[in-house]
Simulated assay, not measured.
Amino acid sequence: MKKNYILLFIMSISIGFAQIPTGYYNTATGSGYTLKTQLYNIIKNHNDQGYAALWTLYTDSAFRDNYYENDGSLLDMYSEKPAGPDNYQYTTTSQQCGNYSGEGICYNREHLVPQSYFDNYAVDPMKNDAFHVVPSDGYVNGQRNNLPFGRVSTATYTSTNTSKKGDNLNSGYSAGYSGTVFEPIDEFKGDIARSFFYFATRYENIMSNFYNTTNGSTTQAKAMFDGSNNKVFSDTFLNILITWHLSDPVSTREMAINNRVYQHQGNRNPYIDHPEYVCQIWPTQCAALASNTFAKLEEISVYPNPTNDNKINIESEITLDEIQLINLNGQLIQVVQKPEFTNNTYSLDNLPQGFYLLRLSSENQSVIKKIIVN
């Protein structure tokens, strides 16, 4: 769950937006792919500082843990555990990779859009762009390799903070792809999505090169892209990225990085400054995600209702992210995160007598069901 420092978040919004240069987005007046091209013209031609400069950039406070343990260690999305102490920390530049045989040995520079995508086209400035090249534990980076990001069904590898690798869950918002993917924890899914939207915009003029075929089928390494300069992403991965963007809002950490990278290379990530741009550029996909999920939520069956044995069953064909049981005073009585269904059914037992609201959430959408326990 995104950080719950509400007051700090509100204050940081005003600080973050105050640092957007006056008039920076004045020419971003269109919609759809026209807006994306306008943003491309704003952020292109940034000042490439080179690959080695990233090491120095990572020592800046914007890339340090000032949000969880608040200890100034390097904040790595694959090892950070928001709800508790991390298994290991990187505190000095001597811990740069290096060889590694497991987690916690060294950190390196990970290309969220893998370098293998563009090695044969134009390495600079993409190789050095701090908006998509991030500090990462070397071993976990190696596990991710050049895999697309997605929604893992059964993990074959899990990092210490539960980032994982495995076959993509070919259903719900991630339907349409069953190959191997890498899934970060919920806390950083929006961060990664906005990095991809930035990349698709900053390098719009060459995105048609980010597509390759082998024997007529898309290779796994470039499965996220559709070979166009406008839409850029395949249907499956655009749905994944939009869902992650909507369900994990912009954080204070992202704002700090946006401001620092602007100082470093002279351009900004528009989707951190203006998250609404995503659904203005890809409105059809945003609307379809919202309507499809909501329609399926409406179809969920809750029975027996009323119930006479202090138990209700929830029957759903879609994966639920959360179940909340709320009494008439607005008090949260019970919360179930990522409930595990058996034969599409999940049961809530030992319910006190009363009238309740049952909130069922999936993919940034929710529906309320009224239930009575006699």
Rank of each mutant, 00 (worst) to 15 (best):
Phe341Trp: 06
Ser217Tyr: 11
His245Ile: 03
Lys81Phe: 11
Gln334Gly: 13
Asn343Thr: 11
Asn4Pro: 09
Tyr121Leu: 15
Ala256Leu: 06
Gln115Ser: 13
Asn108Met: 01
Asn145Glu: 12
Gln324Phe: 10
Glu340Arg: 14
Lys189Leu: 03
Glu103Asn: 08
Ser178Val: 12
Trp244Ile: 00
Gln95Leu: 02
Gln95His: 07
Tyr58Cys: 06
Ile240Val: 09
Gly354Phe: 14
Phe355Asp: 15
Met11Gln: 14
Ile368Ala: 11
Asp119Val: 15
Gly172Gln: 08
Gln49Cys: 00
Glu183Pro: 00
Pro135Glu: 01
Ser291Asn: 09
Glu363Phe: 04
Glu299Ser: 14
Thr93Tyr: 08
Arg260Leu: 01
Ser73Tyr: 02
Tyr51Pro: 00
Ser178Ala: 14
Asp124Ser: 15
Tyr90Ile: 10
Ser61Trp: 01
Val113Ala: 12
Ala155Ser: 12
Tyr67Val: 09
Tyr346Asp: 11
Phe199Gly: 00
Ala175Gln: 13
Leu112Gln: 11
Gln19His: 12
Asn350Ile: 01
Leu351Asn: 15
Asp273Lys: 04
Asn120Ala: 14
Phe355Gln: 15
Gly138Phe: 02
Ser14Val: 15
Leu39Tyr: 09
Val261Ser: 05
Phe131Gly: 08
Gly142Met: 08
Phe196Leu: 07
Gln280Asn: 07
Gln38Gly: 06
Tyr139Leu: 03
Val261Thr: 10
Gly84Tyr: 08
His245Gln: 06
Met1Ala: 14
Pro125Asn: 03
Asp273Cys: 06
Asn146Thr: 14
Thr180Asn: 03
Gln285Tyr: 05
Ser195Leu: 01
Ala287Cys: 06
Asn374His: 14
Met207Ala: 01
Ile333Lys: 13
Gly30Trp: 07
Asp129Val: 09
Gln324Arg: 15
His245Met: 04
Thr243Glu: 05
Val134Lys: 10
Ala175Trp: 01
Tyr203Met: 04
Asp65Thr: 06
Ile6Leu: 09
